[in-house]
Simulated scan of single mutants.
Amino acid sequence: MGDGGGRGDGVCGIHTDTVHALAASCKNPQATESIYNIKDHPAEKWICICISSVEQLVTAKPPFSPLLWEFMRNVYPGGISCIVSKGDWLLRLGHSVPCLGPAYDRVGTKDSIMIRVPDHTVTRQLCDITGPLAITSANPSGEPDSTHHNMVISRLGHKLQDVLCDGDSNEVVTSTVVNCL
């Protein structure tokens, strides 16, 4: 996800299990902020957190109900985004060194956050390497979603640090959002 020194300040285009996305390491709050500028994303719209597994959540110890844990274990990995309450547990999310702290205020809303565990091996491995990623669909705000890396390159490539080329998306719609509050 880069060091923030190039075009896009560390924002890359990636493939997910749904449509292509813009991604930035949560270790780099400037990159997370850049996502808003790159796609002209309204400040009130959410940026989601992408992680590699439910186990990353378990180690952060969020105060989820047993029913929510069961739901997440049944739907992840997959094309679901769960809206959950924000809290101090997010500061523990990541590898042995917490990495969400700097981006805490730039993802989700003041009180809630959307979590994704995509059913896409490359994206999950990327999350294992970088820690949680701030992600949103790779399209200019208000325009159709990008379903191929060529769409990301032609529409936003000049604003990005890099694009992970991986062909067509498996789906043509974004993830299904489930309000778990």
Rank of each mutant, 00 (worst) to 15 (best):
M1G: 13
G2C: 09
D3S: 14
D3R: 15
G4E: 10
G4W: 11
G5K: 15
G6Y: 06
G6A: 14
R7W: 02
R7H: 06
G10T: 05
G10V: 05
C12D: 09
H20T: 05
A23H: 01
A23Y: 03
A24L: 04
S25T: 12
C26M: 14
K27I: 09
Q30W: 06
Q30M: 08
A31P: 07
A31M: 11
T32Q: 06
S34F: 03
Y36P: 09
Y36K: 11
H41Q: 15
E44K: 15
K45E: 13
C50H: 04
I51F: 08
I51Q: 10
S52K: 03
S52V: 07
S53A: 14
V54R: 05
V54H: 06
E55C: 09
E55A: 15
L57G: 02
V58I: 11
V58Q: 10
A60M: 07
K61D: 04
P62V: 09
P62K: 09
P63F: 04
F64V: 03
F64N: 03
F64G: 02
F64A: 05
F64T: 02
L67V: 15
L67F: 15
L67A: 14
E70S: 13
E70F: 13
V75K: 11
C82M: 07
C82P: 03
G87W: 00
G87T: 00
G87H: 00
D88F: 01
D88A: 09
L90R: 00
L91V: 03
L93T: 00
L93Y: 02
H95D: 12
S96V: 15
S96T: 15
V97A: 13
V97W: 14
C99K: 11
C99N: 12
G101H: 08
G101Q: 14
G101A: 15
Y104S: 07
D105I: 07
R106H: 11
G108A: 04
K110N: 00
K110E: 00
K110C: 00
D111H: 00
S112C: 04
I113C: 00
V117D: 03
V117K: 06
P118Y: 04
T123C: 11
T123K: 00
Q125L: 05
D128S: 06
D128H: 01
T130F: 05
T130I: 02
G131L: 01
A134S: 07
A134W: 00
A138V: 08
N139Y: 10
N139L: 13
N139G: 15
S141N: 15
S141Q: 09
D145F: 10
D145A: 14
T147Q: 10
H148I: 09
S154P: 02
S154D: 11
R155V: 06
G157I: 07
H158G: 15
V163S: 01
V163R: 01
V163N: 01
L164D: 05
L164Q: 08
G167D: 13
V172E: 13
V173L: 08
V173D: 10
V178Q: 06
L181N: 12
